[in-house]
Design a protein around this nucleic acid. Structure first.
Lengths: 162, 162
DNA sequence: ATCGCAGGTTGCATGATGCAACCCACACTG
DNA sequence: CAGTGTGGGTTGCATCATGCAACCTGCGAT
């Protein structure tokens, strides 16, 4: 049956996953972010079915995450580039990469991010912009209509971040 | 046909998505992180099919993301709690939430994160741990076997992060 | 005795995916 | 100008995952 849309869920996580939650979608974005921008290159690297790739690319273009631009005429050939909305996905890709590095059992990280100025390997961490403190060191609470005490009637709890 | 496993891809993003990339999985983790921990509560909040929820929960337990713990006997009743591996997913959930807040067209964020000490709304940003500088302000390059110059023969490019 | 609840399991219909084959316009080679 | 290669797809078919509703089981309460 059709996969249910999350879009009526009044939850930003659900809104995001409604756009980038399909299988392959974030891997396609990852490849394009890393400089693989053409249909055949993406298809070969990922091993994704060609019709599925067509679907993902057009859906991402429809959602404004990618732009399809011709890089030559006669014959017309295309590449896919990130829009600002697409570039804003980088924190998601990077945190997914980190979690995979730490927890998925690969012997060592297949890819490192380096700062081109210092040449150093980067260690990305999520902090509060104002205080600069890592979120995992704070007592963080979620507030909003969507988040309610659960059925036990317990009071709202802190998020377990570490 | 069966969805292809990404696990032989030598890419941490793929490894992560192999575990948390199924539809509903991250929404289930989100709910549990926000304190919804019981089968029926999750099922009602998400509107997920009950058999699908069963599958997602057992898969997450098998992967060590969740722990199924009894909170009473006679009759035995269970709740699902995050393991350390599951708690480590919080940066992914939070960055997904941010992207949804910014780009998915909701009038305003349905949920805010606040610091319980200061009471202030948190604005999470991904920085390099050592320098404290936001990644989007750096020239970042990905290095590793998986990342190669693309078919145009162009040299390795910086990641477009902003 | 039966009602309800928590936490599932089962059966069926359909849509999404994988896979292979095909297509089309153009360019290059002989 | 016939044949071959390349980029970027489309089409058909088989199968798996999902949605949905119904059913089940153990227990406590009425």
């Amino acid at each position: 049956m059709k996969r249910k849309s999350y879009s009526d869920m009044n939850c930003s996580v659900a809104q995001s996953l409604d756009i980038v939650g399909d299988p392959w979608t974030l891997l396609v974005v990852r490849d394009i972010m890393f400089g693989i921008r053409r249909f055949n290159d993406i298809q070969e690297r990922l091993g994704i079915a060609r019709n599925t790739l067509t679907d993902r690319l057009t859906t991402l273009v429809d959602h404004g995450v990618l732009a399809k631009v011709a890089y030559q005429d006669n014959p017309e050939r295309f590449e896919y580039r990130l829009t600002p909305k697409g570039r804003a996905l980088s924190p998601i890709i990077i945190t997914l990469m980190q979690w995979g590095d730490q927890w998925s059992g690969l012997p060592e990280p297949p890819v490192h991010l380096i700062d081109r100025n210092s040449g150093r390997i980067l260690d990305p961490v999520l902090v509060d912009r104002q205080s600069g403190r890592p979120l995992e060191q704070l007592r963080v609470q979620a507030i909003g209509e969507t988040v309610r005490p659960n059925s036990t009637g317990s009071q709202r709890e802190d998020l377990e971040l570490r």
